[in-house]
């Protein structure tokens, strides 16, 4: 497990990083925490010519509330997110997910931007961000663009990020009153990648109806996706367990899991139903507790 040779640079600021990425487009890979990329490089499944380490690039790991947005820097670690009370008080789903990623050492160094840009279909953040209707900020030497998390994840290890772009920020809308969310992760063992993960974020109206709903699913398709059919079934409805079971079944029907070491496709489809229903119930309880 020895990487093949590569060059390495550690630019001092974002401008320099973006310039290098543009100059060496195609052979350069961005290194954030390293816990997604380095395992692939050690296996020689990835053989970049140049690693651009963002370690010294300032301003990329902040966690701030800016009006109706939470802004999370791309280099914020899972640990930072886990421990950010303003964020996790408003969005406990973020703590649910962060606390179940890898293990403590990985959470100390792995970053949300690295995980999102890497786009492992079994990684947890992509489903959560889609449930939260988050946006992703991408910078290149030519400018900045903000894209919705929904639609960003194209395929396994493939996103809408361009080779010369850097993921600089995740933007999450601040939840309205009577909101609650939950991430339910089924894993074979502590620290494992998800067998199935279900992320739910919902908001209730004053009359108790579901006014906003987001559902993201982990590890049950080529890339994490939003369970839109289930969302459609829930939006505007009064929450109840039967409705949740129907919506969870709709989420399952929309999933396209593959048989692998985590289990057969049939099992995973059933677990989408189970985990989605659990996440809906937990999200509802939190939303009601807020109300």
């Amino acid at each position: 497990m020895i990487p093949s040779a590569f060059d390495y640079v550690r630019p001092a600021d974002l401008g320099e990083a973006l310039r290098i990425l543009k100059e060496r487009e195609g052979e350069a890979k961005v290194l954030s925490g390293g816990f997604s990329l380095l395992p692939l490089i050690k296996l020689r499944l990835a053989q970049p010519g140049l690693l651009v380490d963002l370690r010294d690039v300032g301003g990329l790991n902040g966690l701030t509330r800016d009006g109706d947005l939470f802004r999370i820097g791309g280099r914020a670690t899972h640990r930072q997110i886990l421990e950010d009370r303003p964020l996790t008080d408003a969005l406990p789903i973020m703590k649910d997910a962060a606390s179940r990623i890898g293990d403590p050492q990985i959470r100390n160094w792995g970053t949300i931007g690295g995980s999102v840009a890497h786009a492992d279909p079994a990684a947890d953040w992509p489903a959560v961000l889609q449930a939260l209707h988050a946006s992703i900020v991408l910078r290149s030497a030519d400018g900045e663009r903000t894209v919705p998390a929904r639609g960003f994840f194209i395929d396994t290890f493939t996103t809408g990020i361009e080779p010369a772009e850097i993921l600089t920020e995740i933007q999450i809308p601040f939840p309205p009153p009577r909101s609650g969310g939950s991430y339910q992760k089924l894993e074979r063992r502590a620290g494992d990648f998800s067998t199935v993960g279900a992320a739910v974020q919902m908001t209730l109206g004053a009359d108790g109806r579901i006014t906003q709903i987001g559902i993201g699913l982990t590890a049950v398709a080529d890339s994490p996706f939003a369970a839109t059919h289930a969302e459609d079934a829930l939006r505007g409805a009064h929450p109840n367990d039967e409705l949740f079971r129907e919506a969870a079944a709709a989420a399952s029907r929309q999933s396209r899991p593959a048989t692998d070491s985590h289990g057969p496709a049939e099992y995973k489809r059933a677990m989408v139903t189970e985990m989605t229903a659990r996440a809906l119930r937990a999200a509802l309880a939190r939303a009601q507790a807020q109300g």
Binding site: Y8, R10, L31, G34, F35, L38, P39, K42, L51, D53, R55, R79, P104, Q105, I106, N108, W109
Partner: peptide, 20 residues
């Protein structure tokens, strides 16, 4: 596992240059 700048880290998944 070691500590890098006070944080526990898995040193098999870190480059020496990252720890400069």
């Amino acid at each position: 596992t070691i500590h890098v700048n006070g944080l526990s880290a898995k040193s098999c998944t870190m480059l020496a240059v990252q720890a400069d």
